[in-house]
Design a protein around this nucleic acid. Sequence first.
DNA 1: CTTCCTGCAAAAGTTTTGCATTAAC
DNA 2: GTTAATGCAAAACTTTTGCAGGAAG
Lengths: 146, 146
Amino acid sequence: MTRVDDLHTTAAARLRAAGQRYTGAREALVVALAGAGKPLTIADVLAACPGVPQSSAYRNLAALEQAGVVRRVITDEDFARYELAEDLTEHHHHLVCSSCGRVEDVTIPGDLESSMDRTLDRLARRTGFAQVSHRLDLIGTCRDCA
Amino acid sequence: MTRVDDLHTTAAARLRAAGQRYTGAREALVVALAGAGKPLTIADVLAACPGVPQSSAYRNLAALEQAGVVRRVITDEDFARYELAEDLTEHHHHLVCSSCGRVEDVTIPGDLESSMDRTLDRLARRTGFAQVSHRLDLIGTCRDCA
DNA sequence: CTTCCTGCAAAAGTTTTGCATTAAC
DNA sequence: GTTAATGCAAAACTTTTGCAGGAAG
């Protein structure tokens, strides 16, 4: 079974667990997000999934998010972006260009990641907050805008 | 000169540098943000500044943001929040409750902060990205929702 | 007196929803 | 067959903008 089959099997299972179905439109959305290498806007998604109307894209992305297959990504743009849930991809962060708004995925060396995790764990413990996750983005200037 | 006077002097100077004026409405917005202890929504701001119409709030917050007095804060809600620019407040991060959406400011011990900064600096250097700033939020469950 | 700000109302943009129909299981 | 998904259009919501009048420097 290939990694892609695995992805679809997992997506279908999570939807089923939520009482929902893994339809063609939903599979198309997952394929688009899996191949992008960065979080996609609704416009990106619609371009990658011709024939899927906007309202279905919104509704299906919401369903996939509730099922834990997709994550809605926050940016400083005034529209949302979507990517696959973290446990379906490599752990990564985002580089956000403050000049052109471009967003790229970035993975960092394991030792940096674990140093970061240790720091965040200590931070969570000291604040008495039940930490579920963190959100870390680097905001700067991309190579094209520099 | 008190700290509050200082805040208003700085705000006025930054606006003036951008060719803009420190009017009563803008002062009211700054006072509201300075006293909140957390990033405010537009609704919060309007409640704290009676008589300021919505369009003026948006326009003035945008002007204050461009002048470097105010920062627009990104959350996973579908509306924006605003706080004073970081150099006008203590450096802090945000605790975001994934259950009720509540956002709180949090400051962390200096040693944790500098360990974090070192990690982020190394991260920026290795990615070849011109790092300007970072965005770090803790997302978890607040004391009321636990 | 020139430039910027204000306030109202209308518009623009993204996202959500009602409803009848179709598809999935 | 029963339940959920689809597609269209219309609505809801946050945010932006045009314009005429008023305030600031």
